[in-house]
Design a protein around this nucleic acid. Structure first.
Lengths: 218, 218
DNA sequence: CGCGTCCTTGAGAGTTGTCAACTCCAGTGG
DNA sequence: CCACTGGAGTTGACAACTCTCAAGGACGCG
């Protein structure tokens, strides 16, 4: 991991998206992480919270016997670890080459107390995260393997703003642990979709959505 | 449903728990709902948000073909529907006899802008909800039926502050839809726990935790 | 007391997991 | 340049957990 301590964050992204959070930028530290590098671990003191600048971050929870679940993939612009109190209850790892901005939690909270716009942004983001989590719970609790994978592809395409071709930054393992499946099942479903002509896979991590209606629910 | 319009909420619960939210009380309307009555539906305009005063509320999501998932059971003191923007993306229903306080969303947001303590409370609650949702996703994605039921019982006992005897306000259907199982599987697991001496069921909705260690993970 | 709803239990089916072999590919070093 | 190696992904056979379907039991309410 490389740190440019106390450098103000570069390249302000699309302003509309950041809005009230611009105030945060000043107190952040820009950091880089390589593939599979750990940003923080489950149980670490939750001293900081983060915003993704580039790349993909996975938030993982581990069971004692090694079973893993990925609660979320965070893409550019997403905030994470803001909800921790005391210690992180999940770990964060870089899926690919990642740049984040790290904020001292205490400073964030001070800012939120002083600036209602910052508080509002944090609130809004937290609420959006909650809505997304509820959606994912529906997926995990009530959808078949095929529906989960299809839903995952469409969701990722939307978040990456891709209509047809999709570069998956994560491994089959990550996908499986995100969807509550095994890698074999993910692989089989993808092969099935390919055979059905719904998608194409020019390479393992590149997926083209040929027939979106075949991926849609119903 | 019965409404006592603009009556200030009665019987302030344990003060510590409400804290900054006392300011909210003034703008709330107290309402009652009977068993299985709908508080709001998926798709309704999200004009209000709520706090549970007494009873149990379930937050449900429905798939087009009727599959249902319960995202959360809200007990006394819990807030819900604060995250909605525009319209509710889930329905809320009374599990048993329920009393809630209903707040106009616009007024809540005005309050949050003016009073940092209110904003902080909402933020904290949202973050706690997010943490709980991530925990539930781990359960749905990676735990066996037995682990889910055991985890559910322990969690409910903790939230109801019961050490031994537990009164389940919800049906097996509700439990199943909350845990991503079928009613038959829930029933079988409970019977198994009873046979193993981990719990007793003096009546269908009453469960006694005889051997907590048998319910613990690991 | 009878009806309906909820719950339990059983038998069998099905989706997904487990285990194992094989392929593919990138990186390494002879 | 090519063989080697190891990780990731795919595919197949089989097992297992959970679901489905069905019947019966318990309980509350009229």
């Amino acid at each position: 991991m490389r740190t440019d301590a106390f450098q103000p964050a570069a390249a302000p992204l699309p302003i509309g998206q950041l809005d009230g959070l611009l105030a945060l930028e000043r107190i952040g530290t820009r950091m880089s992480f390589g593939r599979n590098e750990e940003i923080f671990a489950q149980g670490d003191a939750a001293t900081y919270c983060y915003r993704v600048v580039a790349g993909t971050v996975r938030l993982c929870k581990l069971l004692a016997d090694g079973r893993r679940h990925i609660a979320a993939f965070c893409l550019a612009g997403d905030l994470f670890a803001f909800e921790a109190v005391g210690e992180h209850f999940q770990s964060a790892e870089a899926v690919d080459e990642v740049i984040v901005i790290r904020f001292p939690r205490a400073a964030v909270e001070r800012l939120a107390e002083q600036q209602p716009s910052v508080a509002r942004q944090l609130r809004t983001r937290a609420f959006a995260g909650l809505a997304a989590a509820h959606e994912q719970m529906l997926l995990l609790g009530r959808m078949t393997a095929g529906e989960r994978v299809a839903s995952f592809l469409l969701d990722l395409a939307e978040r990456l703003d891709r209509r047809k071709a999709l570069d998956l930054p994560m491994s089959r393992y990550d996908i499986a642990d995100y969807l509550g499946l095994t890698i074999e099942t993910v692989s089989r479903v993808l092969s099935g979709l390919k055979r059905a002509g719904a998608i194409a896979m020019p390479s393992v991590h590149r997926i083209e959505l040929l027939d979106r209606s075949a991926l849609m629910p119903g």
